[in-house]
């Protein structure tokens, strides 16, 4: 009966796994749903992680954590992970499965939905209402321009949540660790990962609490230093607009917008971005938006909470200094 949460690990170079922040949010979300349905929350962790890290799931509300450590599962694999997730849902008799949105989580959710004939709703922004037979969830649609209240009635329901769907509160509770070794399927291991290129030590954009983002107003890739300085002072991730990524000033995985990454941080600072509707679509889930642009007519100001009409080359270093001196 328990609510099952797929808790994704980030693997460090030495192989130690740490729970992703988005997955901790998912565990808290799952525990809230479990409370609502009068049941408990079980986390599923796949891959190598130490006991204290696994017990941490309890701080966020899981009473039990299933840990699958088969060697073949060390490399993230959407098919094999979905097989493990479906087996866990079967063992736990779970009617609700919660997954944080991510490149792996999305794929695992879809494959598991196919296996379990489960209704699947993605980009959910708030806790559900209803009961185990019929859940209503609020999902973001039209790239953040609207919401759909969606009813889920299938016996198994899978929900993927967006960042900030809940604000977790933690306790000192620890989850009981249980080894989990379901039968794996050779068919799931036919693809070969031949390489991973990943910026190290950076907060992924979808998980960042604060994002400092630059547009064409930054005038060139050589000027990104002042933006990175502010991001560093705020412990923020950096993003960019589509023209900036199209011009190869910044890598594609930093492109925020309708055809790039959609983000919902606590704070989004737009520097020299005019605010085309396609860019706004990617950021309108942000709690607070700050816009810095020398053009007072930039449409982005209409979507902003705070605005400064000014030159980014003057303003950004001053903001960085203000953050540091107040620090």
């Amino acid at each position: 009966m328990s609510v099952l949460i797929f808790a994704e690990l980030d693997q460090a170079a030495d192989g130690t796994g740490s729970l992703r922040k988005s997955s901790l949010e998912a565990i808290f979300y799952g525990a809230q749903v479990a409370g609502m349905l009068g049941t408990t929350a079980t986390a599923l962790v796949i891959g190598s992680a130490e006991a204290p890290e696994l017990e941490l799931t309890g701080n966020y509300g899981a009473t039990k954590v299933l840990h699958a450590t088969a060697e073949r599962l060390a490399q993230p694999n959407n098919m094999a992970y979905a097989t493990v997730l479906a087996a866990a849902a079967g063992q736990e008799g779970s009617s609700v499965v919660i997954i944080a949105k991510s490149s792996l989580g999305d794929a695992v959710a879809a494959r598991a939905a196919g296996k379990l004939k489960a209704g699947l709703v993605s980009n959910v922004v708030d806790l559900p209402e209803g009961d185990a037979a019929s859940l209503r969830v609020k999902r973001s649609i039209y790239t953040g321009k609207a919401f759909a209240i969606t009813e889920m009635k299938s016996p198994v329901k899978i929900i993927t949540i967006r960042k900030n769907a809940v604000a977790p509160q933690t306790t000192d509770a620890k989850a009981a660790i249980e080894a989990f070794s379901p039968t794996l399927n050779d068919q799931d291991f036919v693809a070969q990962v031949t390489g991973v290129e990943k910026a190290t030590g950076e907060v992924p954009l979808t998980e960042a609490d604060i994002i400092v983002s630059g547009g064409r107003g930054m005038r060139g890739p050589e000027n990104w230093g002042i933006l990175e300085d502010l991001a560093h002072a705020l412990h923020a991730a950096t993003g960019c607009s589509k023209p900036v990524s199209d011009l190869d000033w910044r890598p594609h995985h930093e492109h925020i917008g309708q055809t790039g990454i959609k983000v919902s941080p606590n704070l989004y600072v737009a520097c020299g971005i005019s605010g085309a509707i396609q860019h706004l679509a990617g950021v309108n889930g942000s709690k607070v938006i700050v816009v810095i642009n020398k053009d007072a007519e930039a449409p982005f100001f209409k979507a902003a909470d705070y605005g400064i009409v000014g030159d980014v080359f003057d303003i950004l270093p001053r903001l960085t200094k203000a953050v540091q001196s107040a620090g």
């Binding site: 609207a146 919401f147 759909a148 309108n284 902003a304 909470d305 009409v309």
Partner: peptide, 19 residues
């Protein structure tokens, strides 16, 4: 397996505070 019951638009954004 899922059905939209109702659509909603985001609440209108308050005025931008200019600094």
């Amino acid at each position: 397996l899922t059905k939209v019951q109702k659509y909603e638009l985001p609440p209108p954004k308050g005025a931008c505070r200019m600094i």
